[in-house]
Computed example of a mutant assay.
Amino acid sequence: MADELSKMFAALADPTRRDMVARLAISDATVSQLADPYDVSIQAVSKHLKVLEEAGLVTRTREAQTRPVHLEAEVFDLMTRWIERYRRQAEERYQRLDALLADMNDGPAAQRREDDRPRRRGKAS
């Protein structure tokens, strides 16, 4: 699983590949359609697609004379589960920290700090 995730995250580290994935999330596209908005060659786009394909994020099919690229959206479930696990752990740590800080601000230590403050005396009229 770790190697799969490493490949996926490495493939998505490039902004052009992330953009391609976002576009493929809307609909399948051919290599030339994917190359349209970029100032790069078809070969460069093919190299990007090869990285995405090796990571398991996209597949290419054959339809007549074209080879549409398809996003394998279910692969993102693996990434989502991995991210969610660490998000939950972080959330639990923040909740413990919030409880500790609340205890420090409202608990006995806070009361002692307040008791130790010098009292201000107003001027007598």
Rank of each mutant, 00 (worst) to 15 (best):
R67F: 03
R67P: 01
R67N: 07
R67G: 02
P68C: 00
P68Q: 01
P68L: 00
V69C: 13
V69A: 09
H70A: 03
L71Y: 03
L71A: 14
E72Q: 14
E72Y: 05
E72T: 10
E72R: 14
E72M: 11
E74Q: 13
E74W: 08
E74T: 14
V75D: 02
V75F: 03
V75R: 15
F76E: 07
D77M: 08
D77Q: 12
D77Y: 12
D77R: 13
L78H: 10
L78E: 06
L78G: 04
L78I: 13
L78Q: 09
L78P: 01
M79G: 09
T80K: 10
W82T: 03
I83K: 04
I83L: 13
I83S: 05
E84N: 05
E84I: 08
E84Q: 08
R85C: 05
R85L: 13
R85Y: 05
R85I: 08
R85G: 02
Y86H: 15
R87L: 02
R87D: 01
R88M: 11
R88K: 11
R88Q: 13
R88P: 01
R88W: 05
R88L: 13
Q89E: 08
Q89G: 03
Q89V: 04
Q89Y: 06
Q89C: 01
Q89I: 09
E91D: 06
E91F: 01
E92V: 09
R93Q: 07
Y94C: 12
Y94K: 06
Q95N: 04
Q95F: 07
R96P: 00
L97D: 03
L97P: 02
D98W: 04
A99V: 09
A99H: 10
A99M: 08
L100K: 15
L100R: 15
L100P: 10
L101R: 10
L101N: 11
A102L: 11
A102F: 10
A102K: 14
A102D: 14
D103R: 07
D103C: 01
D103W: 03
D103Q: 06
M104P: 04
M104T: 12
N105T: 08
N105P: 01
N105G: 11
D106P: 04
D106Y: 09
G107Y: 09
G107V: 07
G107C: 07
G107H: 06
G107Q: 07
P108E: 15
P108Q: 12
A109N: 05
A109C: 04
